[in-house]
């Protein structure tokens, strides 16, 4: 029978995790759905569970300012609703949360849970790629920080060690001037993604100085490629337009979707490329 640990603080949670390898549980909207069983029975989980949703250390949103704008530190047990209620939450993240879940899920689900689930279709994770988020982990030997793309190592796989917990997600200042979020879901609300595009750019004096493009549900992990982006930076929008065919070809190499119960590989690829093109041509003006 599955064991449930309810530690009093992060230190105890880490200790439980280190000693038992217990699975962290925050909102439960992935874990308890995946292991659901039958009415009147316990979920089928073959490891102990350590609940972290109540830990005050993980329930905080901290804002620290530097010269370029507010930096956001989102505790691992902060819910989506709390993020939506917070004025600093970047628009891209906000948009992805609104489309990904109904209120009843937003009230318990967490960003940290979404990235630990490491689904290539995780919409909020896609926004984190575009926003250059970093994941903060705590373990017996202290804390470390990883860029989101290094934290998620494959479908359902992360760099989280068995004795570590995600403690926070750090968002650098969002200085983008253009933000574009588009999710193609199975319906209009409370839907899983067929694919999604999270993109942002900074345009200063008619020059695209920074650009970030993340595409979800089209490859084993979320697609973001800094080399391609690099070629698009420091150009005027009209020059950038000339590079679009080549850019799309480059993305076409990276976008390797599958057929599944929600969509087809063909549709996903076609639409992902069409959305990137839309972003580059229509949004970056």
């Amino acid at each position: 029978m599955v064991t449930f640990h309810r530690p009093v603080d992060l230190a105890e949670a880490l200790q439980v995790r280190a000693e038992t390898g217990a699975i962290p549980l925050a909102g439960g909207t992935d874990l308890l759905v995946r292991h659901r069983n039958w009415a009147g029975t316990l979920p089928r989980i073959d490891k102990p569970v350590v609940y972290v949703g109540h830990l005050q250390e993980l329930r905080r949103i901290d804002i620290s300012g530097n010269g370029s704008g507010p930096q956001m530190t989102i505790g691992a047990s902060v819910t989506y609703s709390e993020l939506l209620d917070h004025p600093t939450t970047p628009q891209l993240l906000r948009d992805s949360i609104i489309e990904l879940a109904a209120p009843g899920l937003r009230n318990v689900a967490t960003l940290a849970g979404n990235i630990c689930n490491a689904s290539p279709a995780a919409d909020a994770a896609c926004a984190l790629y575009a926003l250059d988020a970093e994941v903060e982990l705590a373990g017996p030997s202290g804390r470390r920080r990883l860029p989101i793309a290094e934290f998620i190592t494959g479908p359902g796989r992360t760099a989280l060690n068995n004795d570590e917990l995600v403690t926070a997600i750090h968002l650098p200042p969002d200085n983008s001037t253009v933000k574009f979020y588009k999710k193609v879901g199975t319906r209009r609300a409370n839907a899983l993604s067929k694919l999604s595009l999270c993109a942002c750019a900074r345009i200063v004096d008619r020059t695209v100085t920074e650009i970030g493009i993340a595409v979800g549900a089209v490859a084993p992990t979320i697609v973001r490629d800094r080399d391609i982006e690099h070629h698009l930076q420091n150009t005027a929008p009209e020059q950038l337009a000339l590079r679009i065919p080549q850019t799309l070809q480059q993305y076409a190499e990276l976008i390797r979707p599958i057929d599944d119960q929600r969509s087809t590989a063909e549709y996903r690829k076609h639409t992902a490329l069409a959305l990137i093109e839309q972003f580059l041509t229509h949004e970056l003006r």
Binding site: A102, T186, R187, R188, A189, N190, A191, L192, Q261, R262
Partner: peptide, 15 residues
């Protein structure tokens, strides 16, 4: 192939 309510989707109030 669509045997969960997440995969067999029926209209929500926003559709």
């Amino acid at each position: 192939q669509q045997i969960t309510m997440a995969d067999y989707v029926i209209p929500t109030s926003l559709d």
